[in-house]
């Protein structure tokens, strides 16, 4: 019994399995990546510049905001500072996932962190809750598949950008929100039934915090502040 269990676990944690577990999120990466390429070209970036942003910055929302700031001729320092704040939530994502990988080398850990996204975080955290452990090959399969797909999609979007002026009419931009809804539902799946009420209470609090804070700070700052506040309330109010 033990042998078959560990075999099953190994089979579930190959690079290929990681790539397979990434597939459901690829539609999201592709549609948002294409949209970014189109927006990038519309913001007077060259195809090479679009590809470089995807390759090096590798952060959907930050890339869109960079384009928006470039269009209004914002200074370099303002763009970099905004990008930093928009992506600061990754600190929380990394902090949540990192404890699963402490047995691996520093270099491998840098690799996991470098390619971490909202989506790969969502998929990995679900898998971690499911099997209690996460493996290097699986994580790399997940991360690298997403990364390659993102860079290619952004570049293709830029190539086709000159012909498509309004990608929104296809509803593709909603892929991101739909993905976060599904990841949230999957996350709640793993919550024990006696704690579900508490989690739903936190979700309601999050909605209240997000909307109220958005009146006073930019929404990406609201994401950070609400998450920190409500997770703290979660600790205080849990039994």
């Amino acid at each position: 019994m033990k042998v078959s269990n560990s075999e099953a676990t190994l089979h579930e944690n190959t690079f290929l399995q990681g790539a397979k577990d990434c597939v459901p999120t690829l539609f999201g990466y592709m549609s948002i990546g294409l949209a970014f390429g189109i927006v990038g070209v519309a913001s007077h970036l060259s195809i090479l510049e679009v590809a470089c942003l995807a390759l090096f910055v590798y952060a959907g929302s930050a890339q869109f905001i960079i384009c928006a700031l470039l269009v209004v001729n914002a200074p370099l320092s303002a763009i970099i500072l905004t990008t930093f704040i928009v992506n600061l939530r990754h600190l929380l994502l990394s902090l949540t996932l990192a404890p699963y990988f402490t047995r691996y080398s520093l270099l491998k850990n840098i690799g996991f962190g470098t390619l971490l996204t909202d989506e790969s975080f969502g998929v990995a955290v679900n898998k971690g809750l499911q099997q209690g452990k996460l493996y290097d090959k699986w994580m790399n399969g997940l991360n690298i598949t997403a990364y390659v797909c993102w860079v290619i999609s952004c570049t293709i979007g830029a190539l086709f950008g000159q012909w498509i002026s309004n990608p929104e009419i296809f509803g593709l931009d909603f892929a991101l929100v739909a993905m976060f809804v599904a990841l949230l539902v999957l996350q709640l799946e793993h919550v024990k039934s006696d704690k579900l009420k508490h989690n739903l209470f936190l979700i309601v609090l999050m909605i209240v915090f997000m909307i109220s804070l958005s009146f006073v700070v930019p929404s990406h700052v609201a994401v950070l502040l609400s998450t920190v506040f409500v997770a703290t309330i979660g600790v205080v109010t849990s039994k």
Partner: peptide, 24 residues
Amino acid sequence: VVKWLSFIPVCILTALVIEGLIIE
């Protein structure tokens, strides 16, 4: 801290959904 981190996924995923709802 571990307990605090356990609440991060649900909170941040909710935040990202709500962010998609807001037009500034």
